[in-house]
Amino acid sequence: MMGNKEKNATKICKELWLHPFESRIELSKNLKLDKSTVTSEVAKLIKDNIIIELPKEIDDNSLSSGRKPIPLILNKEFGVVLGIAIQVGSCTVSEVSLSGLVIESKEYFLNITKENIKEEVLRIYNEFLFTRTKNDPKCYGLGIGVGGLIDYRNNTIKYSVTLDVEQEFSFIEEIEKETKLVVTLENNANCCAWSKLVPNNDSLSDFIFVLLEFKQALIPHKKYGGIGVGLGFVIDGKIHYGVNSYSGEFRSCFCKEKNENQTLLSKEEEKRVLEDSEIMARFIAEISANIASLANTLDVSCIYIGSDIEKPANILSSKIEKDINNNWLFPVEKKIKVTCSSFGTNTIALGAAQKLINELFSLGLLPE
């Protein structure tokens, strides 16, 4: 069991991970800790090179307004984790500092399935280790993001087209035994939500992340060659998983037939969506109507749209803004920010890493 000092150190580090640049006074207030406790803990964390003091802001009133608070951040040299984003036909790996900074990313073009995922993840990790020196920050774990029905409570996959999983599948414990690291598993859309949740300097507590994956529609796949649409929900500042941990699995409310389609587009239309403007317009209109209704019902503050192709995301953003207003019943002004997030698999990999860092803090493993 952790002692109070370790608990307080963990609380302080996690708070600075979530809200970098807070001062000792803000830490004391937000964590409900005595100022003397925060001062003592921060001094030790600075001595251990885990926290860094930034220069004080100087203004013309600095002499008359008293001592300025000193902003604090986690040291990017404190440690790192690897975020691994697995998609159809490719895999992106990002080295992320424990402060949440992406240090380096690399893309691999390979087909990962349940048959080879353990070997490929271990190969990627060993390749990463080969480049390390004794002076490099310690690696604390691996965060993996993949499309499908993910049970976050026990790190298992219930179903995944990407990995060709149709029955419950688990591989995380095997990788943990091989690497002696903490390894987490998360759904791709939830990873994107994690990437916006941390750091949370905008204090966003309720938002939706809409993930669109068009490129996989161009990749032949024995089960599925369509557009990927997934949602990540953040409610009250936390990822919302739902009772079965299936929250965010999208299917248009306009679909009436029992089939594998997420929207009214046929499989053939999905393959042509990037080259046929009429098909794209129908797709955008259908997605927008669904998201606008959800946004108004949940009363979120923001909608992020991430897409591997930029133009459709921009069109969808404008359409959702209009549909939110049209869908709103009451004569009371309502503002929901709709913005495009720079997406690539880096977003998924970063979010997978942030989910892992949160787990490390929750387990009391940071700082050591």
Score class of each variant (00 low, 15 high):
residue 4 N to W: 04
residue 5 K to E: 00
residue 5 K to D: 05
residue 6 E to Q: 02
residue 6 E to Y: 02
residue 7 K to W: 08
residue 11 K to I: 06
residue 13 C to H: 04
residue 13 C to M: 09
residue 14 K to F: 03
residue 15 E to I: 13
residue 16 L to R: 06
residue 16 L to V: 00
residue 17 W to P: 15
residue 17 W to M: 07
residue 20 P to E: 00
residue 21 F to V: 09
residue 22 E to M: 10
residue 23 S to E: 04
residue 23 S to D: 12
residue 23 S to F: 15
residue 25 I to E: 02
residue 26 E to G: 09
residue 28 S to T: 11
residue 28 S to W: 13
residue 29 K to S: 14
residue 30 N to I: 10
residue 32 K to V: 02
residue 33 L to T: 03
residue 33 L to W: 00
residue 34 D to F: 14
residue 34 D to Q: 11
residue 34 D to S: 14
residue 34 D to M: 11
residue 35 K to G: 09
residue 36 S to E: 05
residue 38 V to Y: 10
residue 38 V to D: 05
residue 38 V to E: 02
residue 40 S to W: 12
residue 42 V to T: 14
residue 42 V to E: 08
residue 44 K to Y: 13
residue 44 K to N: 07
residue 46 I to R: 11
residue 47 K to Y: 09
residue 50 I to M: 09
residue 51 I to P: 02
residue 52 I to K: 10
residue 52 I to T: 08
residue 53 E to R: 12
residue 55 P to M: 04
residue 55 P to E: 10
residue 55 P to R: 06
residue 57 E to C: 03
residue 57 E to K: 07
residue 62 S to P: 13
residue 63 L to G: 15
residue 64 S to E: 00
residue 66 G to N: 10
residue 67 R to K: 12
residue 67 R to T: 12
residue 70 I to H: 09
residue 71 P to F: 11
residue 73 I to D: 00
residue 74 L to I: 14
residue 74 L to C: 13
residue 74 L to D: 04
residue 74 L to S: 03
residue 75 N to L: 13
residue 76 K to A: 09
residue 76 K to I: 04
residue 77 E to S: 08
residue 77 E to G: 09
residue 78 F to I: 04
residue 81 V to D: 07
residue 83 G to H: 11
residue 84 I to L: 06
residue 84 I to G: 10
residue 84 I to E: 08
residue 85 A to M: 04
residue 85 A to Q: 01
residue 86 I to W: 06
residue 86 I to E: 08
residue 89 G to K: 05
residue 89 G to T: 12
residue 89 G to F: 11
